[in-house]
């Protein structure tokens, strides 16, 4: 189909706008995939990430035990390959006899959920504020950017910690705090992109054609500055997972017995020199997830932003 269109220019011109756009979008997607797949690490990251998503979705099917069930008589059981291991608890059990593997599998749900929620909140709020700042400039812009500077003046984890202290410990509050701490990055990116796009001819053309402010901001300008936002979103997805796990580890995130990986680590800390597995596996799960997302993020950057491409 595509090839016939390109061979016959009249056909393309004669086609309805929608089809032409669909074709060019497909071509762009193909180009994107070409560059993305050039990066071996990114492809591996993508596969691992898909696997984690599947694990999260099918957790009830995959997990051999309930994540919260305490198996009496199986406290701190080592993994199967260690002496004293048991095949029904492949990665061993924790101090109250819960199956580590099942908790890890359910933990994937929390981590992905945290990432999705934090990024959506931070992205939508950040883009909105950034659009307003970049589009209207002037006093509005100054005030907004000052506020963002103030947020960025604190170490993100400290600010999140204090916010959670205000809001009260818990997963939801931790997510709110992390989203708040992350959105200045989107504000800055969006604002910078809007400011550089605003002077372009196509924006002037749209304005001359009578497009209103809102339409200009969202329909005309925003689609043209998505690339850096997508890259940033990938980065902050992994940062959100890390920060939430850190808050959990400090006892300020998800509360026990939630099988959140950071919280699991916090509970396991006192057994660190006695039962290495309760400490090792949750952290490994965090590392693998974050690493997969960061690998994908690098690939996204290569594929979306040719300017950043290095030989």
């Amino acid at each position: 189909m595509t090839s016939t269109n390109t061979k016959d220019p009249n056909a393309a011109v004669g086609l309805e706008g929608g089809t032409v756009i669909a074709v060019s979008r497909r071509a762009r997607l193909a180009e994107f995939w070409y560059y993305f797949s050039q990066n071996r690490g990114a492809v591996i990251g993508l596969y691992v990430f898909i696997a984690i998503v599947l694990i999260a979705i099918f957790a009830p099917v995959l997990a051999p035990h309930s994540p919260t069930m305490q198996n009496r008589g199986f406290f701190l059981l080592p993994p199967v390959w260690e002496e004293g291991g048991n095949w029904s608890f492949i990665l061993g059990t924790d101090a109250v006899g819960r199956d580590v593997l099942s908790r890890l599998i359910y933990g994937a749900r929390f981590s992905l959920f945290i990432g999705v929620v934090v990024v959506s909140v931070a992205v939508s709020v950040g883009i909105l504020i950034g659009l307003i700042a970049g589009y209207f400039r002037g006093a509005v812009d100054t005030v907004i950017m000052r506020v963002m500077d103030i947020i960025l003046a604190f170490p993100s984890l400290l600010l999140a910690l204090v916010l959670v202290a205000i809001l009260g410990p818990g997963l939801v509050n931790a997510m709110i705090a992390i989203a708040l701490v992350q959105q200045p990055h989107y504000v800055r990116l969006t604002r910078a992109a809007v400011m550089s796009e605003k002077g372009r001819d196509y924006v002037t053309a749209a304005r001359v054609a009578g497009a209103g402010n809102i339409r200009l901001m969202f329909k005309t300008i925003l689609p043209n500055c998505t690339a850096p936002l997508i890259v940033q979103a990938a980065l902050s997805f992994s940062a959100a997972i890390l920060d939430a796990a850190a808050l959990g580890f400090l006892g300020m995130g998800a509360q026990p017995p939630t099988p959140e990986w950071g919280t699991m680590l916090a509970e396991a800390r006192e057994f660190i020199l006695r039962a290495w597995w309760v400490v090792t596996f949750p952290g490994l799960a965090i590392l693998i997830t974050v690493l997969a997302i960061n690998l994908m993020g690098d690939g996204l950057r290569d594929a979306l932003d040719p300017k950043l491409k290095r030989s």
């Binding site: 690490g41 992994s238 890390l242 796990a245 850190a246 580890f249 950071g262 680590l265 800390r269 660190i272 020199l273 290495w276 400490v279 090792t280 949750p282 952290g283 490994l284 965090i286 590392l287 974050v290 690493l291 997302i293 960061n294 690998l295 690098d298």
Partner: peptide
Amino acid sequence: MGAALVGYSMPIFWWGLLLIILFSG
């Protein structure tokens, strides 16, 4: 660069515990 990406993705609170297990334990 692979190692750098791992380092960049590291949950350092876990990394610290691992090092304690290995070097202290």
